[in-house]
């Protein structure tokens, strides 16, 4: 983390803030509490302000994510093809709700408003792998594969 902070230029304008946060998250997976405090000292924006800005956007995480990030699409096309049933089923099978990570650190559930595969809805994405036209039985298989 120190390495990352050292690489930043000495004066950072506020327009760069989101980019820095994105870069950090890409590298370390989430925005660490200590990092935000250190960054705050470096760029002169209060930590509360940085939290406030970052928490506005759904991209940023403040907790480490699991090994597998499961994205269930809750876009409109998936919704009318019963994605809500899938979401409920997922919660039933794993006990996870939107944004939660399983205790063994393996699975994180994140609902996304649209993955863009509307023709093949409902769509489920696990890390970079897509599953299309997912049924409840498929979902069970996907979860078993992850465990």
């Amino acid at each position: 983390m120190e390495e990352f902070l050292n690489k930043l230029p000495t004066s950072v304008s506020k327009t760069e803030l989101l980019r820095i946060l994105q870069e950090f998250q890409d590298k370390y997976g989430y925005l660490d509490n200590d990092f935000i405090h250190e960054l705050s000292k470096k760029i002169g924006i209060q930590p509360g302000k940085i939290f406030g800005i970052a928490s506005f956007y759904s991209q940023f995480r403040f907790k480490p994510s699991g090994k597998y990030i499961v994205n269930l699409c809750s876009g409109v096309a998936c919704h009318i093809n019963s994605s809500e049933n899938l979401i409920n089923e997922f919660t039933k099978l794993t006990g996870l709700k939107d944004g939660e990570t399983s205790t063994d650190g393996k699975i994180t559930l994140e609902l996304v408003p649209c993955l863009g595969g509307c023709a093949n809805s409902p769509v489920v994405k696990v890390n970079d792998k897509y599953y299309i036209k997912v049924t409840k039985t498929d979902l069970l298989k996907i979860i078993q594969e992850l465990k």
Binding site: G116, G117, C118, A119, N120, Y130, I132
Partner: peptide, 8 residues
């Protein structure tokens, strides 16, 4: 493109 990547 992304939609065909989703389709495999």
């Amino acid at each position: 493109s992304t939609c065909s990547i989703i389709a495999g």
